[in-house]
Structures are given as structure tokens and as C-alpha cells.
Write a protein that binds this DNA or RNA. Structure first.
Lengths: 189, 189
DNA sequence: ACCTGAACACCGTTCAAGT
DNA sequence: ACCTGAACACCGTTCAAGT
């Protein structure tokens, strides 16, 4: 793809993200206009509205994964995961899409679908992470990693959603500490 | 409203629920046809597609509340909540709408929106429930009820979603036991 | 390849007319 | 009040034509 094409594509993505934040959903005509392109031109870059939405939401999750999930953090399991939670809270506090996506107050079903898939994927990844720590002897052998992974990810998600909707958000470090305490309690039960 | 009108309304609701299960979303023409009524006739009972969807999804939550949330269960807090979790798992295993709603694999944004609101509401209700037990001295005074409520409801939701998507679901009683163990660990931390 | 803008298609909604 | 079915409206998508 040419550099001109790439730049247009980026303009469309940025316009779509802004439109999503402003209206809890996107309108193709509005996005095209904001991006300075015709509707037909937009469709040259994205085959359908759902594809454009998917690109915007996937970019959000890619940012999160890069800063939190794939981050190389040294130390024993508990230290690593505690630090990961800190980073995840900071990420959600800072990213402009987080409040909208995390509360699911969205007018497009495609966003909700991707989000649900992403949460299920995170739960499975967490389960695998727990199982690895379990094999190392860092977690009790009795832990059901599959269920605990779902509990940790589903719970953390809702805790962050709750914090993001409060008028006065708790400090990121305090929220991370409380969240970690609950996560630690689950895996040590 | 006349008994004839009420019966028609019920037929529409039943057709919509079936359509939702069969197609992960509803089509007004399809629902009207399945309910044996014209499109215009359907609109006599529901002002918009979103209202019909809301009625179907709200009925699901009303069933859950009746069997689980508002149920009068005797005994101390831990006994009560453990029993509540058992009933919630049984409810989700039995209700035909549960797999679809709980996994959010839905083609209508309205469903996702209602579901997100309902989960946030459940988290606040759980927080109030925890606070009451805390005042009774049944839970540690250090517990942050607001965050714990979000953790419990968000986590439980994802655990049940995970179980419902497995080809071989764990036995309801075992799932309830494991879920309760994790919930108890959170509030006793 | 990249883009335009008018025509098209799909599906939710309305409405004049009937019982 | 309850219902019909054709017309309407809205918005995502296509496409012939341009650079």
C-alpha cells in the first residue's frame, strides 16, 4: 500500500475513533466527512462499517496488550502480576477509548461482540498463565486455573469499569492495590 | 389491555425470544410472521424494535431476580450467598436465553447495552448486600464493598459464561462450589 | 491505486384504511 | 382497541466514471 493510501487510512481510523467517542457509535457519512474523504473513498480502505469498527477496537486491544500483556516483567509470579495490574489500571485511566469500551455503552453490536470475544480470550490467556505458575510451584496445585482465569479477568474488568464511571475516580495506585489484593485472594484460596 | 391484546403480545414476545435464540438477533418481519401478525400489528404492541428486545431481555432478568436475587433465604450471610450462587448457576444452566446473553454473541446493540447496565446494577446491589453484612459484623470491616461487589459480579458472570460455552459443562453443583470458594476468598481477604 | 457522488438495497417504521 | 399491507425513511453499500 502506498504511503498516501496509508495516510488516508490513518485519517479514517482517527476520525472513526473520535466519532465513536463523541457519539458512542460511528456514522459512515460523518466519519468520511471528518476524514476529508468521500463515502466511496472510505470504502476503498474498509470493506464495511464493521471492518472499520473492528480496526478501531482491535487497535485499542493491541495498545493494551503491548503495554500490559506482552510486557516482559522480571521477578516471581506475584510480583509480575501485581505490576501487570498496575499497568492495566494506568492504561485504562489514560486511554480515551477505555471508558466507552469498558462500560459497553455502545450503539454498535459489532463492538460488543469483539469486546466479548476479547474478554473470553483474556480469560483463557490468564488461565494458561496461572497453569504455568502452578507447574512452577508458585501457585497451589488445587487451583482450577480455567475458572480462576475467568474470575480474575471478568472481575478485574468490572472493577475497572466501576472506577472509570465514578465521578471521582480512586487513585490508580490505590485501585491497583485493591484489585491485586482480590486477585491474590482468589489464587491463594 | 384486553385479554386478546395480551395474548397477541405474549405471542410476539415468544416469537421474538425464539428468533433471538435462532439468529442471535431479531428481524421484525420474521418475528411478526412467526407470531402470526402483520408488521403494523406488531408495532401496535411494541413502539420499536429496541422496545421489543428490551422486553425479551428484561423478562430474562426478571426470571433471574425472582429465582435468585429476591429469594428469601434463611441463615447467616455465608450460607445465604452460597445458596444464592447455587441457584444462579442452576438458573443459567436451565434458561434457554442464558448462553446467548451471557456470552454477548449478539447482533443487536440494544441487548449489549441492557446487559451492561444490568451487570453494573448487579454489582451495586452486591456492594449494598456486602455493606449490610459488614454492619452486622459478618464480614471484615476492611472490605471495600464497592470494589468487591464489582469483582464478585463481573467474575461470576465470566465464570458462568465460560462454563456455558464448554462442550462438556461441569456439573452445576461443582461449578457453584468452586465459584463460591472464589467469592468467599475475595470477601475474607 | 485512489477517489467521487449519485443510485441502490435493506430493513425498521409509519399511516391510511379496515374490523 | 386491534390489525393490515403498502409506502416511506434512514443509512450502509455499490458502482460507473474520474485522476
Amino acid at each position: 500500500m502506498s504511503s498516501r493510501g496509508l495516510r488516508t487510512r490513518e485519517r479514517i481510523l482517527a476520525a472513526a475513533e473520535q466519532d465513536l467517542i463523541a457519539h458512542d457509535g460511528i456514522d459512515i457519512v460523518r466519519v468520511a466527512s471528518a476524514a476529508g474523504i468521500s463515502v466511496g473513498g472510505l470504502y476503498h480502505h474498509f470493506a464495511a462499517k464493521d471492518d472499520l469498527l473492528a480496526a478501531v477496537v482491535t487497535a485499542f486491544h493491541a495498545r493494551h496488550n503491548e503495554q500490559v500483556i506482552y510486557a516482559e516483567i522480571p521477578g516471581p509470579w506475584r510480583e509480575r502480576e501485581r505490576e501487570r495490574i498496575r499497568r492495566s489500571v494506568r492504561f485504562h485511566y489514560a486511554d480515551p477509548l477505555a471508558p466507552l469500551l469498558v462500560t459497553r455503552a455502545v450503539t454498535d453490536a459489532q463492538i460488543a461482540r469483539i469486546d466479548a470475544q476479547e474478554l473470553a480470550r483474556a480469560a483463557r490467556a490468564s488461565a494458561a498463565n496461572l497453569a504455568a505458575a502452578q507447574r512452577n510451584g508458585e501457585l497451589p496445585a488445587t487451583l482450577d486455573c480455567d475458572l480462576a482465569g475467568a474470575m480474575l479477568m471478568g472481575g478485574s474488568r468490572q472493577v475497572i469499569a466501576r472506577a472509570l464511571t465514578l465521578k471521582r475516580r480512586p487513585a490508580a495506585s490505590r485501585l491497583a492495590d485493591e484489585l491485586w489484593a482480590m486477585c491474590a485472594a482468589i489464587v491463594d484460596a
